[in-house]
Design a protein around this nucleic acid. Sequence first.
DNA 1: GTATATTTTATTGTATACAATTTATTACTC
DNA 2: GAGTAATAAATTGTATACAATAAAATATAC
Lengths: 235, 235
Amino acid sequence: MESKPRTSRRSEQMGDLIEERIVTGVYPPGMRLDETELASGFGVSRTPIREALIQLSSAGLVEIRPRRGAIVAEIGPHRLCEMFEVMAELEAMCGRLAARRITEPDQQVLAAAHQACEDAREANDPDTYYRLNERFHHLIYAASHNGFLEEQAAALHRRLRPYRRLQLRVRDRMSTSFAEHAGIVEAILAQDGELAAERLRAHVVVQGQRFADLVASLPMLGGLGRGQAKPVSKA
Amino acid sequence: MESKPRTSRRSEQMGDLIEERIVTGVYPPGMRLDETELASGFGVSRTPIREALIQLSSAGLVEIRPRRGAIVAEIGPHRLCEMFEVMAELEAMCGRLAARRITEPDQQVLAAAHQACEDAREANDPDTYYRLNERFHHLIYAASHNGFLEEQAAALHRRLRPYRRLQLRVRDRMSTSFAEHAGIVEAILAQDGELAAERLRAHVVVQGQRFADLVASLPMLGGLGRGQAKPVSKA
DNA sequence: GTATATTTTATTGTATACAATTTATTACTC
DNA sequence: GAGTAATAAATTGTATACAATAAAATATAC
């Protein structure tokens, strides 16, 4: 059968498009999002654009200032560290619950996903590793058998994606990441919740730390402080 | 000066109004939210209503089914337990961080808020206690000195409000709650993060458990299972 | 009389028109 | 010429009009 879009709502499609461009950096933090401009750019009216922006605002990706338009949310280093701190705890919680609740077949799936990561590491393929890493973490979220937690963790993970992505370029990050994964899998399969939690927390915190180092060095992110945005030309 | 609304956006006002009616049960779970009806009811056009509904949908309070309208989100007992489980962990995290990071003046404020709770308990005033209890918890969120965590915790707390509110009617809940608070304050002031986390987790989990008992007994919530909603007449 | 197909109705989704407010530009005063 | 006031332009917020789809009702076949 032909794949028909499961939603006929243009506003959702617009939301996905804009979100994509935000997380990939096409629309950088602080950029003004002109409704009329976006509308004509996407070939729709302002209505779906507005609805998409409101949704993205709720998700924290854009900031709507009353009567003053929307801008891509600027997440400063400080806020970002806060978010990583929470992410670490959510991951830890997922791990703790997963260790207690993971089912037999899910154990197999997790082990297989881990194995796949190893293959990507040996092939020295960061993009594939990145993708498989995402899958690995999502499997742990799901293994917590708490659907709400799974959603929350996935949402925050997604939101931190652009910042995490940078790190895999860092030297040896793949190997250390994989080594940490091994410890995590071990703890979960041994059904040691506290150990799994601890290791996942450390895994993410390290990411956050690594990020903090990165943010200090990169000029692109260095100017991304708490303060007001430098205006970005729209064309 | 006269208090002028800080936002001129009708959609936000509508959102607050609708949210208020949802969390207070005026609009019960499963109820259809007819855009036209709401619009005429509030004396505005459909546009602000739609925008409000989209926002509430992002917050998880309403569910928008494409081309089929919006309904008040139905949170079944199962999902609710999941949410309480996450809430417990967020509170625990706030407590752990608060114990490590709370400032001198904030210690005073927290102690005072706790004292105020005691007064309400002695006066046997559940409504006041409820309000002061909210304040107490929010102070702990803030004391974590993680603004993002504070927001997340507050948002989930708010979302669970209608369900938590029921419990204070339960016999002796005020006293046990207060006793638990005392232990939490003690742990935080002693800067024992793990103890504070543990006690806060238990505090919330108990609420969740209590809720589970409640949900099993109340017919109003008993029919609120995972499945499809019974339609609720709109007038 | 029941089940299916067709028409009707109602409601959502989108586009456009208008109103209100903010920002930019210009004019004016000192 | 700099600073402020008034005006003009641009952009957001709201209302309404129209289009598309789903639910309801009716009609028809068996």
